[in-house]
Simulated assay, not measured.
Amino acid sequence: MELKSKKAFKKIFIRMPNWLGDFVMALPLLRSIKENHPHAQLTLIAKPEFKELIKLFPIADDFISLPSGNYRCLHKLYSIGASEKPDCQVLFTNSARGDIEAWCVGANKRLGMAYPGKYRPFLTHVYRLDSFKNNLKEIHQTNLLESFLKSFCLVNEVNSSPFSLKSAKRGLNRVGIVAGSSNNPDKCWAVEKWCKLIKKLSFEIPESEFILFGTKNDCLISKSVANGCGVPVLDVTGKTNMMEFAEELAACHLVIGNDTGGMHLANAIGTPVTVLFGPTNLLVTGPYFDSPKLFLQPEGCSREGGSSIQLLDPKEVSIRVVNFLKNEIVNRG
């Protein structure tokens, strides 16, 4: 369904995704909305933990933290909608809960996209993905959202250049490690494999400094890696907020990790990343930004995923990482 009018919006609310990786993959879309509608007030609705993070990216004018509890959340959104009167709300979520939230906000135009067989009756305008039905495993999530936004004249082109953090100073041979994955343990490489990789890299990259990152849910695996690798490692897992996490990642020469939100964040701020894939689809949810990146999968694994990440060999990963870094040094000249 297309909008009947292409008039400029005055107030645009955006319901952001709940997971860090999805949140980061939406950032280039926000930048493009802001560029295409420079006079619109852009307000993000998201989990409270993202409020500090978004301050690093000049793409939003206001932020609404989602409160906990069903009634409290919906009542707050209703009150905000009645006061602010947004003329458009865009949903980057695909849940019934997010749609009901949007209905409570009450924007005249509530926009979302629907996968084949799914319906979103609480929205006023829906971009259906039926025409992509046979290719959904091959199209990046950000590109699908770009098509959705273009259909409603919210963006023209999406810029995939990374963001630059003014305060960031990249350290030589500072290697970040993201060993956990809060939302899916199947995406986690085994502790002993991480330990072997860090040992190998400590010989291949002289005077390297290794730092473990992650959420509080990743503390156990990070502690096991730090205690088992036999190499000095700084473990800051669970000790940083989102803004501090981004600044720490920006100071790294390289970040290595599972397919998880921290890797998307490092990629978004221009830090070279090596991402280990197994069960997940790198075509759909791989880091999006045009920063140096190396995606590694087990031998014989489809790019759409489906293999165990444990089939990745630490020795082979080490060789690929070192070659990746050498190529980056040559490219930077």
Rank of each mutant, 00 (worst) to 15 (best):
G106A: 02
D87T: 00
W103V: 01
I100H: 15
G81S: 08
K109L: 11
S95Q: 05
P121E: 15
N94W: 07
R97C: 02
G106V: 01
K109V: 09
L91K: 10
Y119P: 10
L123F: 08
H125G: 05
H125P: 00
V90N: 04
C88K: 00
Q89Y: 11
C88Y: 08
A102G: 09
V90E: 12
G98H: 04
A96R: 10
V90R: 10
N94Y: 12
G98T: 06
P86E: 05
I80V: 08
P121C: 14
L91M: 13
A114V: 02
C104R: 14
L91H: 11
N108W: 11
T93D: 02
K118W: 02
G117M: 01
V105G: 00
T124G: 09
G106C: 06
K118M: 04
P121Q: 11
Y119Q: 10
P116R: 07
K109A: 06
K85P: 06
R120L: 05
G98K: 05
E101F: 12
I100Y: 09
I100G: 10
F122H: 13
S95I: 10
I80N: 00
R120V: 04
R110E: 13
K118V: 06
C104W: 13
T93W: 02
S83R: 09
Q89P: 14
V90F: 14
N108Q: 10
H125N: 03
C104V: 09
Y119G: 10
C104I: 08
A102E: 12
F122N: 13
N94E: 14
I80K: 03
I100L: 12
T124L: 07
V90A: 11
K118E: 06
A114T: 06
Y119N: 10
K85H: 08
K85G: 07
N108S: 10
E84L: 07
P86I: 07
C104S: 13
G106T: 04
H125W: 05
G112S: 07
D99L: 09
P86A: 04
W103H: 13
P121L: 07
P116F: 04
T124I: 10
K85S: 00
